[in-house]
Write a protein that binds this DNA or RNA. Structure first.
Lengths: 227, 227
DNA sequence: CGCGGCAATATTGTCTGACAATCATGAGGG
DNA sequence: CCCTCATGATTGTCAGACAATATTGCCGCG
Protein backbone atom coordinates (compact mmCIF):
# COMPACT_ATOMS: atom_id res chain seq x y z
CA UNK A 1 0.00 0.00 0.00
CA UNK A 2 1.88 3.05 -1.25
CA UNK A 3 1.09 5.96 0.94
CA UNK A 4 -0.32 9.08 -0.58
CA UNK A 5 2.14 11.90 -0.83
CA UNK A 6 1.47 14.50 1.80
CA UNK A 7 3.80 17.02 0.25
CA UNK A 8 1.04 19.33 -0.80
CA UNK A 9 2.40 19.85 -4.27
CA UNK A 10 0.38 18.25 -6.97
CA UNK A 11 2.12 16.94 -10.06
CA UNK A 12 0.59 18.92 -12.89
CA UNK A 13 -1.58 21.72 -11.47
CA UNK A 14 -2.65 23.37 -14.66
CA UNK A 15 -5.20 26.14 -14.37
CA UNK A 16 -8.78 24.99 -14.50
CA UNK A 17 -11.60 26.77 -16.28
CA UNK A 18 -12.74 28.27 -13.03
CA UNK A 19 -9.32 29.65 -12.29
CA UNK A 20 -9.09 31.18 -15.71
CA UNK A 21 -12.54 32.70 -15.37
CA UNK A 22 -11.73 34.03 -11.92
CA UNK A 23 -8.44 35.47 -13.13
CA UNK A 24 -10.18 37.11 -16.05
CA UNK A 25 -12.79 38.68 -13.81
CA UNK A 26 -10.20 39.78 -11.27
CA UNK A 27 -8.21 41.46 -14.02
CA UNK A 28 -11.27 43.25 -15.34
CA UNK A 29 -12.05 44.58 -11.89
CA UNK A 30 -8.49 45.68 -11.23
CA UNK A 31 -8.30 47.39 -14.59
CA UNK A 32 -11.51 49.22 -13.90
CA UNK A 33 -13.42 47.64 -16.79
CA UNK A 34 -15.92 46.58 -14.17
CA UNK A 35 -16.50 49.46 -11.82
CA UNK A 36 -17.62 49.31 -8.19
CA UNK A 37 -21.32 48.75 -7.93
CA UNK A 38 -21.58 47.36 -11.43
CA UNK A 39 -23.74 44.31 -11.79
CA UNK A 40 -22.32 41.04 -13.06
CA UNK A 41 -24.87 39.02 -15.02
CA UNK A 42 -24.09 35.33 -15.23
CA UNK A 43 -25.60 34.91 -18.68
CA UNK A 44 -23.57 37.75 -20.13
CA UNK A 45 -20.34 36.47 -18.65
CA UNK A 46 -20.97 32.92 -19.85
CA UNK A 47 -21.15 33.97 -23.44
CA UNK A 48 -18.38 36.53 -23.15
CA UNK A 49 -15.80 34.04 -22.01
CA UNK A 50 -17.44 30.88 -23.32
CA UNK A 51 -17.76 28.75 -20.22
CA UNK A 52 -20.69 27.07 -18.55
CA UNK A 53 -22.79 28.83 -16.00
CA UNK A 54 -21.53 26.62 -13.19
CA UNK A 55 -18.01 27.77 -13.95
CA UNK A 56 -18.98 31.40 -13.83
CA UNK A 57 -20.89 30.93 -10.62
CA UNK A 58 -17.92 29.26 -8.99
CA UNK A 59 -15.59 32.03 -10.13
CA UNK A 60 -17.96 34.64 -8.73
CA UNK A 61 -18.05 32.82 -5.42
CA UNK A 62 -14.26 32.78 -5.26
CA UNK A 63 -14.01 36.49 -5.83
CA UNK A 64 -16.73 36.96 -3.24
CA UNK A 65 -14.59 35.05 -0.78
CA UNK A 66 -11.66 37.25 -1.74
CA UNK A 67 -13.74 40.28 -0.99
CA UNK A 68 -13.80 41.73 -4.49
CA UNK A 69 -17.46 41.05 -5.12
CA UNK A 70 -20.59 41.18 -3.02
CA UNK A 71 -23.70 39.17 -3.71
CA UNK A 72 -27.33 39.39 -2.72
CA UNK A 73 -29.76 36.52 -2.73
CA UNK A 74 -31.68 36.27 -5.98
CA UNK A 75 -30.26 39.51 -7.14
CA UNK A 76 -26.76 38.57 -8.04
CA UNK A 77 -23.23 39.81 -7.88
CA UNK A 78 -21.88 43.32 -7.96
CA UNK A 79 -18.37 44.65 -7.85
CA UNK A 80 -17.79 45.57 -4.25
CA UNK A 81 -17.96 49.15 -3.07
CA UNK A 82 -15.80 50.49 -0.29
CA UNK A 83 -16.97 53.26 1.92
CA UNK A 84 -14.80 55.65 3.86
CA UNK A 85 -15.57 53.60 6.93
CA UNK A 86 -14.38 50.41 5.21
CA UNK A 87 -11.09 52.06 4.35
CA UNK A 88 -10.55 53.20 7.91
CA UNK A 89 -11.29 49.72 9.21
CA UNK A 90 -8.91 48.16 6.72
CA UNK A 91 -6.09 50.49 7.72
CA UNK A 92 -6.66 49.84 11.40
CA UNK A 93 -6.19 46.15 10.74
CA UNK A 94 -3.24 46.71 8.42
CA UNK A 95 -1.44 48.59 11.19
CA UNK A 96 -1.39 45.68 13.58
CA UNK A 97 -1.10 42.91 11.00
CA UNK A 98 1.82 44.41 9.14
CA UNK A 99 3.32 45.48 12.44
CA UNK A 100 3.22 41.85 13.49
CA UNK A 101 4.67 40.82 10.13
CA UNK A 102 7.66 43.07 10.44
CA UNK A 103 8.30 41.96 14.01
CA UNK A 104 8.25 38.28 13.06
CA UNK A 105 10.39 38.96 10.02
CA UNK A 106 13.02 40.68 12.13
CA UNK A 107 13.28 37.63 14.34
CA UNK A 108 14.03 35.25 11.53
CA UNK A 109 15.74 37.26 8.84
CA UNK A 110 18.42 35.30 6.99
CA UNK A 111 21.20 36.55 4.74
CA UNK A 112 19.10 36.25 1.60
CA UNK A 113 16.42 38.33 3.20
CA UNK A 114 18.93 40.92 4.31
CA UNK A 115 20.28 41.19 0.79
CA UNK A 116 16.77 41.62 -0.62
CA UNK A 117 16.03 44.36 1.88
CA UNK A 118 19.30 46.15 1.15
CA UNK A 119 18.49 46.13 -2.54
CA UNK A 120 14.95 47.35 -1.94
CA UNK A 121 16.35 50.10 0.24
CA UNK A 122 18.72 51.28 -2.47
CA UNK A 123 16.03 51.09 -5.14
CA UNK A 124 13.69 53.16 -2.99
CA UNK A 125 16.34 55.82 -2.49
CA UNK A 126 17.08 55.81 -6.20
CA UNK A 127 13.44 56.24 -7.14
CA UNK A 128 13.09 59.04 -4.64
CA UNK A 129 16.10 61.05 -5.82
CA UNK A 130 15.01 60.60 -9.41
CA UNK A 131 11.52 61.72 -8.48
CA UNK A 132 10.05 58.61 -10.10
CA UNK A 133 6.80 58.53 -8.16
CA UNK A 134 5.23 55.62 -9.99
CA UNK A 135 8.28 53.48 -9.38
CA UNK A 136 8.38 54.49 -5.74
CA UNK A 137 4.78 53.40 -5.19
CA UNK A 138 5.58 50.08 -6.83
CA UNK A 139 8.63 49.50 -4.64
CA UNK A 140 6.64 50.54 -1.59
CA UNK A 141 4.21 47.73 -2.39
CA UNK A 142 7.11 45.31 -2.80
CA UNK A 143 8.49 46.25 0.59
CA UNK A 144 5.21 45.67 2.38
CA UNK A 145 4.73 42.38 0.55
CA UNK A 146 8.21 41.27 1.52
CA UNK A 147 7.52 41.58 5.23
CA UNK A 148 4.20 39.84 4.90
CA UNK A 149 5.75 36.88 3.13
CA UNK A 150 8.93 36.74 5.18
CA UNK A 151 6.96 36.63 8.40
CA UNK A 152 6.44 32.95 7.77
CA UNK A 153 2.88 33.15 9.06
CA UNK A 154 0.44 31.98 6.37
CA UNK A 155 -2.52 33.65 8.03
CA UNK A 156 -0.82 37.01 7.78
CA UNK A 157 -0.37 36.47 4.07
CA UNK A 158 -3.99 35.50 3.72
CA UNK A 159 -5.31 38.48 5.62
CA UNK A 160 -2.96 40.93 3.94
CA UNK A 161 -3.93 39.60 0.53
CA UNK A 162 -7.57 40.16 1.31
CA UNK A 163 -7.02 43.64 2.66
CA UNK A 164 -4.69 44.68 -0.13
CA UNK A 165 -6.93 43.17 -2.73
CA UNK A 166 -9.83 45.07 -1.39
CA UNK A 167 -8.04 48.31 -1.37
CA UNK A 168 -5.88 47.92 -4.41
CA UNK A 169 -8.20 50.02 -6.46
CA UNK A 170 -7.85 52.83 -3.99
CA UNK A 171 -4.11 52.41 -3.64
CA UNK A 172 -3.89 52.77 -7.38
CA UNK A 173 -5.59 56.10 -7.17
CA UNK A 174 -3.40 57.19 -4.31
CA UNK A 175 -1.98 60.53 -5.27
CA UNK A 176 1.51 60.53 -3.96
CA UNK A 177 3.39 63.73 -4.46
CA UNK A 178 7.04 64.34 -3.66
CA UNK A 179 6.25 65.65 -0.17
CA UNK A 180 4.42 62.47 0.71
CA UNK A 181 7.30 60.43 -0.60
CA UNK A 182 9.73 62.33 1.58
CA UNK A 183 7.71 61.48 4.68
CA UNK A 184 7.14 57.92 3.57
CA UNK A 185 10.80 57.49 2.77
CA UNK A 186 11.86 58.61 6.22
CA UNK A 187 9.51 55.97 7.64
CA UNK A 188 10.91 53.31 5.37
CA UNK A 189 14.49 54.09 6.32
CA UNK A 190 13.66 53.91 10.02
CA UNK A 191 11.85 50.61 9.60
CA UNK A 192 14.66 49.11 7.55
CA UNK A 193 17.23 50.21 10.11
CA UNK A 194 15.26 48.64 12.93
CA UNK A 195 14.77 45.39 11.04
CA UNK A 196 18.38 45.08 9.93
CA UNK A 197 19.48 46.06 13.43
CA UNK A 198 17.35 43.33 14.96
CA UNK A 199 15.10 45.68 16.93
CA UNK A 200 11.92 43.74 16.36
CA UNK A 201 9.67 45.66 18.69
CA UNK A 202 10.86 49.03 17.39
CA UNK A 203 10.24 47.85 13.87
CA UNK A 204 6.70 46.87 14.81
CA UNK A 205 5.92 50.25 16.33
CA UNK A 206 7.45 52.09 13.40
CA UNK A 207 5.41 50.10 10.92
CA UNK A 208 2.23 50.82 12.83
CA UNK A 209 3.00 54.51 12.84
CA UNK A 210 3.90 54.42 9.17
CA UNK A 211 0.64 52.81 8.14
CA UNK A 212 -1.17 55.18 10.47
CA UNK A 213 0.25 58.09 8.49
CA UNK A 214 -0.85 56.52 5.19
CA UNK A 215 -4.28 56.15 6.72
CA UNK A 216 -4.44 59.81 7.67
CA UNK A 217 -3.44 60.77 4.18
CA UNK A 218 -6.08 58.61 2.54
CA UNK A 219 -8.74 59.71 4.96
CA UNK A 220 -8.07 63.31 4.01
CA UNK A 221 -9.06 62.59 0.45
CA UNK A 222 -12.12 63.99 -1.20
CA UNK A 223 -15.36 62.00 -1.23
CA UNK A 224 -14.95 61.43 -4.95
CA UNK A 225 -12.24 58.89 -4.18
CA UNK A 226 -14.63 56.73 -2.26
CA UNK A 227 -17.88 57.08 -4.20
CA UNK B 1 -38.33 55.33 -11.59
CA UNK B 2 -38.38 54.10 -7.99
CA UNK B 3 -34.87 53.81 -6.72
CA UNK B 4 -33.62 50.50 -5.41
CA UNK B 5 -33.34 50.33 -1.66
CA UNK B 6 -29.73 50.43 -0.62
CA UNK B 7 -30.48 49.50 2.94
CA UNK B 8 -28.85 46.10 2.71
CA UNK B 9 -31.71 44.27 4.38
CA UNK B 10 -33.68 42.06 2.08
CA UNK B 11 -37.38 41.62 2.70
CA UNK B 12 -37.74 37.90 3.31
CA UNK B 13 -34.30 36.33 3.61
CA UNK B 14 -35.28 32.76 4.27
CA UNK B 15 -32.50 30.19 4.35
CA UNK B 16 -31.72 28.69 0.98
CA UNK B 17 -30.85 25.07 0.32
CA UNK B 18 -27.19 25.95 0.20
CA UNK B 19 -27.35 27.65 3.57
CA UNK B 20 -29.08 24.68 5.10
CA UNK B 21 -26.55 22.28 3.60
CA UNK B 22 -23.67 24.44 4.77
CA UNK B 23 -25.13 24.70 8.26
CA UNK B 24 -25.61 20.96 8.39
CA UNK B 25 -22.04 20.31 7.35
CA UNK B 26 -20.68 22.92 9.74
CA UNK B 27 -22.58 21.32 12.59
CA UNK B 28 -21.26 17.88 11.71
CA UNK B 29 -17.71 19.17 11.72
CA UNK B 30 -18.12 21.03 14.99
CA UNK B 31 -19.69 17.99 16.61
CA UNK B 32 -16.85 15.82 15.44
CA UNK B 33 -19.01 13.60 13.25
CA UNK B 34 -16.65 14.54 10.48
CA UNK B 35 -13.12 14.42 11.79
CA UNK B 36 -10.11 16.37 10.53
CA UNK B 37 -8.66 14.80 7.43
CA UNK B 38 -11.84 12.94 6.64
CA UNK B 39 -12.86 13.01 3.03
CA UNK B 40 -16.18 14.50 1.95
CA UNK B 41 -17.61 12.74 -1.10
CA UNK B 42 -20.11 14.81 -3.02
CA UNK B 43 -22.18 11.84 -4.10
CA UNK B 44 -22.53 10.56 -0.54
CA UNK B 45 -23.53 13.95 0.81
CA UNK B 46 -25.99 14.44 -2.02
CA UNK B 47 -28.02 11.43 -1.07
CA UNK B 48 -27.59 11.91 2.66
CA UNK B 49 -29.24 15.30 2.73
CA UNK B 50 -31.21 15.03 -0.50
CA UNK B 51 -30.02 18.01 -2.48
CA UNK B 52 -28.48 18.37 -5.89
CA UNK B 53 -24.77 18.13 -6.43
CA UNK B 54 -24.52 21.82 -7.29
CA UNK B 55 -25.92 22.65 -3.89
CA UNK B 56 -23.42 20.44 -2.11
CA UNK B 57 -20.57 21.84 -4.13
CA UNK B 58 -21.58 25.38 -3.26
CA UNK B 59 -21.87 24.52 0.42
CA UNK B 60 -18.41 22.96 0.35
CA UNK B 61 -17.01 26.07 -1.26
CA UNK B 62 -18.49 28.24 1.46
CA UNK B 63 -16.97 26.18 4.22
CA UNK B 64 -13.70 26.25 2.31
CA UNK B 65 -13.86 30.04 2.35
CA UNK B 66 -14.55 29.89 6.08
CA UNK B 67 -11.47 27.79 6.54
CA UNK B 68 -13.19 24.66 7.81
CA UNK B 69 -12.49 22.57 4.74
CA UNK B 70 -9.58 22.24 2.36
CA UNK B 71 -9.84 21.06 -1.22
CA UNK B 72 -7.45 19.71 -3.78
CA UNK B 73 -7.99 19.78 -7.50
CA UNK B 74 -9.69 16.65 -8.76
CA UNK B 75 -9.35 15.04 -5.41
CA UNK B 76 -12.01 16.75 -3.42
CA UNK B 77 -12.74 18.16 -0.03
CA UNK B 78 -11.44 17.12 3.35
CA UNK B 79 -12.10 18.45 6.79
CA UNK B 80 -9.23 20.75 7.49
CA UNK B 81 -6.33 19.69 9.65
CA UNK B 82 -4.39 22.05 11.85
CA UNK B 83 -0.76 21.51 12.60
CA UNK B 84 1.13 22.81 15.60
CA UNK B 85 2.54 25.46 13.32
CA UNK B 86 -0.94 26.53 12.23
CA UNK B 87 -2.01 26.95 15.82
CA UNK B 88 1.02 29.08 16.62
CA UNK B 89 0.35 31.26 13.61
CA UNK B 90 -3.28 31.67 14.55
CA UNK B 91 -2.42 32.73 18.07
CA UNK B 92 0.16 35.22 16.83
CA UNK B 93 -2.55 36.86 14.76
CA UNK B 94 -5.13 36.64 17.53
CA UNK B 95 -2.79 38.57 19.83
CA UNK B 96 -2.66 41.65 17.65
CA UNK B 97 -6.19 41.43 16.27
CA UNK B 98 -7.91 41.03 19.61
CA UNK B 99 -5.51 43.56 21.08
CA UNK B 100 -6.69 46.00 18.46
CA UNK B 101 -10.30 45.04 19.15
CA UNK B 102 -10.04 45.78 22.85
CA UNK B 103 -8.30 49.08 22.19
CA UNK B 104 -11.02 50.23 19.78
CA UNK B 105 -13.72 49.03 22.12
CA UNK B 106 -12.29 51.05 24.98
CA UNK B 107 -12.46 54.18 22.88
CA UNK B 108 -16.13 53.88 22.12
CA UNK B 109 -17.68 52.01 25.00
CA UNK B 110 -21.18 53.21 25.83
CA UNK B 111 -23.27 52.58 28.94
CA UNK B 112 -24.87 49.46 27.53
CA UNK B 113 -21.48 48.03 26.79
CA UNK B 114 -20.25 48.89 30.26
CA UNK B 115 -23.22 47.11 31.80
CA UNK B 116 -22.60 44.03 29.66
CA UNK B 117 -18.97 43.97 30.72
CA UNK B 118 -19.83 44.39 34.39
CA UNK B 119 -22.23 41.47 34.16
CA UNK B 120 -19.66 39.33 32.33
CA UNK B 121 -17.13 40.21 34.99
CA UNK B 122 -19.43 39.12 37.80
CA UNK B 123 -20.39 35.92 36.00
CA UNK B 124 -16.75 35.07 35.44
CA UNK B 125 -15.99 35.56 39.12
CA UNK B 126 -19.00 33.47 40.03
CA UNK B 127 -17.98 30.61 37.76
CA UNK B 128 -14.48 30.75 39.13
CA UNK B 129 -15.46 30.60 42.83
CA UNK B 130 -17.91 27.80 42.09
CA UNK B 131 -15.19 25.93 40.21
CA UNK B 132 -17.50 25.60 37.20
CA UNK B 133 -14.80 25.15 34.57
CA UNK B 134 -17.11 24.48 31.64
CA UNK B 135 -19.08 27.62 32.37
CA UNK B 136 -15.89 29.63 32.73
CA UNK B 137 -14.64 28.56 29.32
CA UNK B 138 -17.98 29.55 27.84
CA UNK B 139 -17.92 32.98 29.45
CA UNK B 140 -14.32 33.43 28.38
CA UNK B 141 -15.47 32.94 24.78
CA UNK B 142 -18.27 35.45 25.31
CA UNK B 143 -15.83 38.02 26.61
CA UNK B 144 -13.52 37.72 23.63
CA UNK B 145 -16.48 37.83 21.26
CA UNK B 146 -17.78 40.94 22.95
CA UNK B 147 -14.62 42.91 22.27
CA UNK B 148 -14.47 41.73 18.69
CA UNK B 149 -18.03 42.86 18.02
CA UNK B 150 -17.89 46.04 20.05
CA UNK B 151 -14.78 47.18 18.19
CA UNK B 152 -17.08 48.29 15.39
CA UNK B 153 -14.59 47.10 12.79
CA UNK B 154 -16.22 44.55 10.51
CA UNK B 155 -12.90 43.20 9.28
CA UNK B 156 -11.90 42.30 12.81
CA UNK B 157 -15.10 40.32 13.17
CA UNK B 158 -14.44 38.60 9.90
CA UNK B 159 -10.88 37.66 10.74
CA UNK B 160 -11.70 36.60 14.28
CA UNK B 161 -14.54 34.45 13.02
CA UNK B 162 -12.20 32.70 10.65
CA UNK B 163 -9.52 32.18 13.26
CA UNK B 164 -11.93 31.09 15.96
CA UNK B 165 -13.75 28.86 13.57
CA UNK B 166 -10.56 27.25 12.59
CA UNK B 167 -9.49 26.67 16.10
CA UNK B 168 -12.81 26.00 17.71
CA UNK B 169 -12.18 22.32 17.65
CA UNK B 170 -8.97 22.81 19.55
CA UNK B 171 -10.50 25.26 21.99
CA UNK B 172 -13.09 22.66 22.70
CA UNK B 173 -10.42 20.23 23.69
CA UNK B 174 -8.61 22.82 25.76
CA UNK B 175 -8.07 21.28 29.13
CA UNK B 176 -8.51 24.10 31.58
CA UNK B 177 -7.85 23.19 35.17
CA UNK B 178 -8.40 25.42 38.17
CA UNK B 179 -4.82 26.70 38.12
CA UNK B 180 -5.18 27.85 34.54
CA UNK B 181 -8.42 29.57 35.42
CA UNK B 182 -6.76 31.44 38.26
CA UNK B 183 -4.14 32.82 35.88
CA UNK B 184 -6.69 33.53 33.20
CA UNK B 185 -8.99 35.21 35.66
CA UNK B 186 -6.28 37.57 36.84
CA UNK B 187 -5.75 38.53 33.18
CA UNK B 188 -9.43 39.10 32.65
CA UNK B 189 -9.75 41.31 35.70
CA UNK B 190 -6.82 43.43 34.60
CA UNK B 191 -8.20 43.79 31.09
CA UNK B 192 -11.66 44.71 32.33
CA UNK B 193 -10.22 47.29 34.69
CA UNK B 194 -8.23 48.88 31.90
CA UNK B 195 -11.20 48.93 29.55
CA UNK B 196 -13.64 50.33 32.09
CA UNK B 197 -11.00 52.80 33.21
CA UNK B 198 -10.53 54.00 29.65
CA UNK B 199 -6.88 52.96 29.38
CA UNK B 200 -7.07 51.79 25.81
CA UNK B 201 -3.40 51.18 25.23
CA UNK B 202 -2.98 49.28 28.49
CA UNK B 203 -5.95 47.15 27.61
CA UNK B 204 -4.37 46.33 24.26
CA UNK B 205 -1.09 45.26 25.82
CA UNK B 206 -2.84 43.22 28.47
CA UNK B 207 -4.92 41.40 25.89
CA UNK B 208 -1.84 40.60 23.86
CA UNK B 209 -0.11 39.20 26.91
CA UNK B 210 -3.21 37.26 27.87
CA UNK B 211 -3.53 35.57 24.51
CA UNK B 212 0.19 34.97 24.55
CA UNK B 213 -0.22 32.98 27.75
CA UNK B 214 -3.05 30.94 26.22
CA UNK B 215 -0.76 30.27 23.31
CA UNK B 216 2.01 29.00 25.56
CA UNK B 217 -0.43 26.73 27.29
CA UNK B 218 -1.75 25.24 24.08
CA UNK B 219 1.71 24.88 22.61
CA UNK B 220 2.71 22.82 25.64
CA UNK B 221 0.10 20.23 24.80
CA UNK B 222 0.90 16.75 23.62
CA UNK B 223 1.08 15.94 19.92
CA UNK B 224 -2.16 13.99 20.20
CA UNK B 225 -4.05 17.27 20.44
CA UNK B 226 -2.93 18.41 17.04
CA UNK B 227 -2.69 15.82 14.30
C1' DC C 1 -49.20 65.67 -8.98
C1' DG C 2 -47.10 62.31 -5.93
C1' DC C 3 -47.40 57.93 -3.51
C1' DG C 4 -48.31 53.08 -2.60
C1' DG C 5 -49.57 48.56 -4.25
C1' DC C 6 -49.48 45.05 -8.14
C1' DA C 7 -48.24 42.37 -12.11
C1' DA C 8 -44.58 41.49 -15.67
C1' DT C 9 -39.91 40.46 -16.50
C1' DA C 10 -35.31 39.39 -15.91
C1' DT C 11 -32.15 36.89 -13.32
C1' DT C 12 -30.72 33.82 -10.03
C1' DG C 13 -31.15 29.27 -7.31
C1' DT C 14 -31.40 24.54 -7.80
C1' DC C 15 -32.00 20.07 -10.05
C1' DT C 16 -30.93 16.36 -13.39
C1' DG C 17 -28.10 13.99 -16.44
C1' DA C 18 -23.99 13.51 -18.94
C1' DC C 19 -19.13 13.19 -20.24
C1' DA C 20 -14.23 14.30 -19.92
C1' DA C 21 -10.26 15.04 -16.87
C1' DT C 22 -7.53 13.43 -13.42
C1' DC C 23 -6.08 11.62 -9.03
C1' DA C 24 -5.19 7.50 -5.96
C1' DT C 25 -4.83 2.92 -5.95
C1' DG C 26 -3.35 -1.67 -7.01
C1' DA C 27 -1.25 -5.01 -10.43
C1' DG C 28 2.55 -6.27 -12.92
C1' DG C 29 7.41 -6.08 -14.45
C1' DG C 30 12.26 -5.07 -13.62
C1' DC D 1 11.91 -4.19 -3.09
C1' DC D 2 10.97 -0.31 -6.16
C1' DC D 3 9.19 1.73 -10.34
C1' DT D 4 5.70 2.00 -14.19
C1' DC D 5 1.29 1.69 -15.96
C1' DA D 6 -3.62 0.56 -16.42
C1' DT D 7 -7.89 0.87 -13.76
C1' DG D 8 -11.63 2.75 -11.12
C1' DA D 9 -13.58 6.26 -8.43
C1' DT D 10 -14.45 11.04 -8.01
C1' DT D 11 -14.38 15.57 -9.36
C1' DG D 12 -14.68 19.41 -13.03
C1' DT D 13 -17.48 21.28 -16.40
C1' DC D 14 -21.22 21.52 -19.51
C1' DA D 15 -26.21 21.90 -21.19
C1' DG D 16 -30.96 22.35 -20.44
C1' DA D 17 -34.79 23.01 -17.56
C1' DC D 18 -37.92 24.92 -14.11
C1' DA D 19 -39.11 27.29 -9.82
C1' DA D 20 -38.28 31.26 -6.76
C1' DT D 21 -37.77 35.94 -6.23
C1' DA D 22 -36.15 40.79 -6.55
C1' DT D 23 -36.58 44.80 -9.44
C1' DT D 24 -39.03 47.51 -12.42
C1' DG D 25 -42.66 50.02 -14.57
C1' DC D 26 -47.67 50.61 -14.57
C1' DC D 27 -52.01 51.65 -12.55
C1' DG D 28 -55.21 53.55 -9.50
C1' DC D 29 -55.95 56.36 -5.46
C1' DG D 30 -55.53 60.18 -2.50
Amino acid sequence: MPKADELGISPTEQPSSVERAAAWLREKIYDGDFTPGQRLIEAELTETISVGRSTIREAIRRLTAEGLIETRHHYGARVRRFTRSDVSSIYQVRQVIEGLAVRLTTHQLNDDGKATLQKLSEDLSGAKTKGDIKRYIELNGDLHDFFVEASGNPFISEIAARLNTRILRLQFKQVFDLDNIAISHADHRAILNAVLGGDAYDAELLMRAHIGRSQQQIESYDDSFFQ
